[in-house]
């Protein structure tokens, strides 16, 4: 059994807006082992990106962590100041964002941007060493090292995303958080990139957190999967369990709503209603207004996030026994 490097406990995060307080992340707990990849899946506005940003405390001005712990190798990030947080960012935990174009500065050469990241965070490279390291990184992510002296606009979308990954890997982080890394890409490019990420993870042995709205992408790359709904982690289990024995009705609905090109063409099921406005989260279980199994207790009391056997966590008063 490998070591747990990240332990998130009861993480709660709020946004203050002109309309009121949005509880974007509410009481989220999970752990991540060394070398493991965790997928966080959910619809837009479910809080998955907020969780990722909270982990590095890369928060917007109006966001505040209300409670909980983020223990990375024993250190709790929550009480740390901006200054104390800085050494952990990039060197221990790095991030790959969805919009690769925005992560790269258009007026600098791609290679130079990675060199700058290296110098900022590690600071001990000579220029020749740094270029050597960039060559290594480019080869690792499947880019021709000759491209390092080109500008971002000369790259295709897939190449840019690879460059951003190279940058994220530059300081040998223990954990890489990838927020919708392939969403803007076409399937063939996406496929190549996902494969590359998996290979890299095996090679380097880093941990990964993948965040996506696309459960098929998450299924491809994750060992364990957490399903989020309306700021809550509603289910957390191994990928196989989530896909074949989902417990939470929301997960069941998500699975049966997702079309697939393979296998027999099954009827797609729809889920009535829409996710709640987090300014006014529903009472009790946040899924109850859309849940076909909801009873009185669901409306009144929040279900506990507990183990339903073999590390299969779910927060539901009426856990389902479904085999898909």
């Amino acid at each position: 059994m490998s070591e747990t490097i990240l332990r998130v406990e009861n993480l709660t995060m709020h946004y203050t807006t002109r309309a009121g307080i949005v509880s974007a992340v509410d009481d989220v707990s999970f752990t991540l082992d060394e070398g493991e990849s965790l997928g966080l899946v959910g619809e837009s506005g479910c809080g998955k990106t907020s969780v990722a940003n909270s982990l590095l405390k890369l928060l917007a001005d109006n966001a505040v962590i209300k409670g909980g712990q983020i223990r990375f190798k024993g250190t709790d990030f929550v009480p740390l100041s901006e200054e104390e947080m800085r050494p952990y960012r990039w060197r221990n935990i790095s991030m790959v964002f969805q919009a690769a174009m925005n992560s790269l500065n258009p007026v600098y050469r791609v290679g130079d941007q990675i060199i700058e990241a290296l110098e900022t965070h590690l600071g001990l490279y000579s220029h020749a060493q740094a270029r050597q390291r960039v060559t290594e990184l480019f080869t690792m992510v499947g880019l021709d090292p000759a491209l390092m002296d080109q500008y971002p606009h000369e790259y295709s979308g897939g190449m840019r995303q690879r460059a951003v990954i190279a940058m994220a890997l530059s300081c040998n982080p223990d954990l890489v958080i990838a927020d919708e890394p392939t969403t803007a890409l076409d399937v063939i490019v996406q496929d190549a990139l996902l494969r590359q990420l998996k290979t890299l993870q095996e090679m380097i042995g880093m941990s990964m957190i993948y965040i996506s709205h696309d459960i098929a992408v998450i299924a491809e790359v994750s060992d364990r999967i957490g399903v989020m709904y309306a700021g809550k982690l509603v289910e957390l289990a191994s990928a196989d369990e989530i896909f074949h024995h989902p417990v939470h009705p929301y997960t069941v609905a998500l699975m049966s709503a997702f079309p697939s090109v393979t296998g027999p063409k099954r009827e797609l099921q729809t889920l009535a209603g829409e996710p709640p406005n987090l300014l006014y989260p529903p009472s009790g279980c946040r899924f109850h207004p859309r849940c076909p199994f909801a009873t009185e207790i669901c409306r009144q009391q929040e279900p506990e996030f507990k183990d339903h056997g073999g590390g299969h966590y779910a927060a539901c008063w009426h856990p389902q026994e479904v085999t898909v």
């Binding site: 295709s156 979308g157 897939g158 076409d186 399937v187 063939i188 490019v189 996406q190 496929d191 190549a192 996902l194 494969r195 696309d214 459960i215 098929a216 992408v217 299924a219 491809e220 994750s222 990928a239 196989d240 896909f243 074949h244 699975m255 997702f258 697939s260 090109v261 393979t262 296998g263």
Partner: peptide
Amino acid sequence: SAVPVPDPRWTRTPVEIKGG
């Protein structure tokens, strides 16, 4: 073969073409 499949048990045939 490049379309991701929502089933972790499924192994896809690798994509043979390269580039974008």
